[in-house]
Design a protein around this nucleic acid. Structure first.
Lengths: 102, 102
DNA sequence: TCGACAGGCAAGTCACCACTTGCATAACTC
DNA sequence: GAGTTATGCAAGTGGTGACTTGCCTGTCGA
């Protein structure tokens, strides 16, 4: 999944995730309002909508339609890819290779 | 740290991290060779060098100069930012808000 | 049924990012 | 000291991504 890292690359999209964690199940309009209020983001509705598309493609946001409303939920499961791929422990002071070479 | 997410956004940079985890403490030339061999990446030396700059700025790579060589080590510590910021558990089936509204 | 509301679609613009190109610097070898 | 090796710097280019603009679809309430 390449889309996960692309989705996380944009600060507005990360703020959207923050917002959804804080208040899960928001609609597009609700998100726009709260992003302006709490995060100082003044993106247009269309911009936020396109961000949500990417987040949904990455699996970080799950949606459900109900009448004319579309609700958005945060899903942290794809983030496991990151911790599975690389060790998260600090290997800064663990320079075995060079030390053994010298 | 905005640079962490930017650094992870590029597939070549992610491959560099993979390579460093596999064999820590490589030089620039060593990395170029192994990226071609094992990852099918044919970027130029300069391209890889610029990627390494970004990775170092993000704290994901730590370097040390020794004569005319510069060694590169992977550092997974910045990745903790991601898991600290968002819950990694699956909240897909945890739609409290909507259910309580209806 | 009509108007307002929530959201979607698609083409166009602009800026940034990855990559190249060419040269420069510094260290090791002989 | 001269040539080679490893890396750094900096300007230029092309393509992608974020955002806009304008219009369209579908749903709810009166």
């Amino acid at each position: 999944m390449d889309e996960l890292y692309r989705a996380l690359a944009d600060p507005t999209r990360r703020a959207i995730l923050d917002e959804l964690v804080d208040r899960n199940g928001q609609t597009l309009f609700e998100l726009c309002g709260r992003l302006i209020m709490k995060h100082g983001i003044e993106s247009s509705r269309q911009a936020i909508s396109q961000h949500l598309e990417l987040l949904e493609a990455a699996g970080l946001v799950v949606t459900e339609r109900d009448g004319r409303y579309k609700f958005h939920w945060f899903n942290g499961e794809p983030l496991h890819q990151i911790t599975k791929r690389w060790p998260t422990k600090n290997s800064k002071h663990n320079k075995q290779r060079k030390r053994s070479d010298t």
